[in-house]
Design a protein around this nucleic acid. Structure first.
Length: 216
DNA sequence: GACCAGGCACATC
DNA sequence: GATGTGCATGGT
């Protein structure tokens, strides 16, 4: 266990050395982070930035302001992020929950405990485990480890996960072995994404990967 | 033109 | 419960 813990931190330091702190999540406010978490589902971040810029330009990057938009207007503004019809619905579902339960106030929401918030978020149509955890960690500063496609791919490539491991299995793997520390969870996930982008796409460059030899 | 990107819900078997 | 499919834009 302790050697595993050490291995996880060694991998962390290797990635940090290679890329430096990523400073996630890019977003000026917790609310912007929440919107970004939904818009970035299976989507390149650059496209999400365009969509968020549109919302800002129209002065509607605000829970109630977005809710008051006509559906076609919302769709037009978030169009660059792709899947704009489904994402308009998902955004609305989340905002209805957010405004109804917390008055659209992230600080009020952050006062609630993690297990309750996670369960609530997962019950919102359009919010799955990764989106829920991204909101919890990056917007509300709750200690949850975010698992994403890169994490799955990297763990699998290094033989550190099984085919049938679920999202929760992989999350447990990290959370059992790391202290419940928001800055570490934040930086760790961001660095895994960065490592995945550079070395672990469909044509992997395993030889150069900073996680070469990673094991536990 | 193919492939990729910081998922999720739903239909079908 | 597992497997397959639709959703869509913009960069490389």
């Amino acid at each position: 266990m302790s050697s595993t813990k050490n291995t996880l931190m060694v991998a962390f330091r290797q990635m940090l050395k290679r890329f430096g702190p990523r400073g996630w999540w890019p977003g000026e406010t917790p609310f912007e982070v929440m919107v970004g978490a939904i818009l970035t589902q299976n989507t390149n971040w650059g496209n999400v930035e365009r969509a968020i810029a549109n919302l800002k330009r129209e002065g509607v990057l605000d829970p109630k302001a977005i809710l008051s938009l006509h559906t076609s207007t919302l769709q037009r503004l978030i169009r660059p992020a792709g899947y704009f019809r489904v994402k308009a619905k998902r955004l609305r579902h989340f905002l209805e929950y957010f405004v109804e339960n917390y008055g659209g106030c992230d600080r009020r929401m952050a006062k609630c405990d993690l297990p309750r918030l996670r369960e609530e978020l997962l019950s919102v149509n359009g919010i799955g485990p990764e989106t829920a955890d991204s909101i919890l960690l990056y917007a509300l500063k709750k200690p949850v480890f975010v698992i994403d496609a890169y994490t799955k791919r990297i763990l699998s490539r290094h033989g550190l996960s099984a085919e049938d491991d679920t999202y929760d299995d992989l999350q447990e793997l990290f959370m059992d072995r790391l202290p419940p520390d928001v800055p570490i969870y934040n930086e760790y996930h961001a660095l895994i994404v960065e490592t995945g982008k550079d070395y672990c796409r469909t044509k992997p460059r395993c030889d150069e990967c900073p996680l070469n030899g990673w094991n536990w």
